[in-house]
């Protein structure tokens, strides 16, 4: 166990005991465990997916962060790494995957496309960023971000996890409805987000007078 990450600086531990004892808070222990075992969903969309795979391989070795366990099923994954262009045709599948992931879950938008549409933003089949549908935790710019940039982004995610507190996290609360549930978009004449039905209807009525 890496005591440096775990110990709180304000408590003095005698030097001869430092290898054996760490004084810490429950939050810190809890977050330390979670941040070191963020399992990504094995999910590649486009060009960025290749850099994501490269980050898994020998040179960058994501296993050093406990993130090498790529799960093909969303039921076992903690992190949705949206790696590439989100198209309108693909977005219902992504939302379904997200809804199937158990709490706590994180979304990382890797690359320009997933963050804000990217170079293909103007295209008719492209969603201008996954944050139109999902709450994104970390945005990694770049086209594509190099594996090192990806790791830098994941370290940023770990920092975010470190700041969470077991007292406030929503996933142990009793609840009737999943607060993170996102309704699955429908493929119509264009992409229909069920949350925005009324808005679409009124805008379509006004369109071109």
């Amino acid at each position: 166990m890496d005591n440096e990450q775990l110990s709180l600086p304000q408590y003095e531990v005698p030097e001869d005991l430092q290898h054996a004892i760490a004084v810490t808070t429950l939050d810190r222990l809890y977050n330390w465990g979670r941040r070191s075992s963020v399992w990504p969903l094995m999910f590649g969309l486009a060009c960025c997916a290749i850099e994501m795979i490269a980050a898994q391989t020998a040179r960058y070795d994501l296993a050093r962060f406990g993130m090498e366990v790529m799960r093909p099923t969303p039921r076992q994954a903690d992190m949705l790494l949206v790696s590439g262009t989100v198209t309108k045709k693909m977005v219902p599948a992504i939302i379904r995957l997200y809804n199937q992931m158990p709490e706590p879950k994180y979304v990382v938008a890797m690359g320009a496309c997933a963050s804000g549409g990217g170079p293909f933003k103007e295209g008719y089949n492209v969603v201008a960023g996954i944050d139109k549908f999902l709450p994104v935790d970390v945005y990694i710019p770049g086209c594509p971000p190099t594996p090192q940039a990806l790791i830098a982004g994941l370290i940023k995610l770990q920092e975010k996890i470190d700041k969470q507190s077991i007292k406030q996290v929503p996933w142990y609360r009793r609840k009737t409805k999943d607060p993170n549930y996102v309704p699955v978009p429908i493929l119509g004449p264009d992409l229909i987000d069920p949350r925005r039905n009324a808005e679409i209807k009124s805008a379509a009525a006004v369109k071109e007078g």
């Binding site: 963050s115 804000g116 960023g129 944050d131 935790d137 970390v138 945005y139 990694i140 710019p141 770049g142 971000p145 190099t146 090192q148 940039a149 830098a152 982004g153 940023k156 975010k160």
Partner: peptide, 10 residues
């Protein structure tokens, strides 16, 4: 510089 990941849109 590639270490520019952030918590918001850039």
């Amino acid at each position: 510089d590639f270490e520019i990941a952030s918590y918001g849109r850039n």
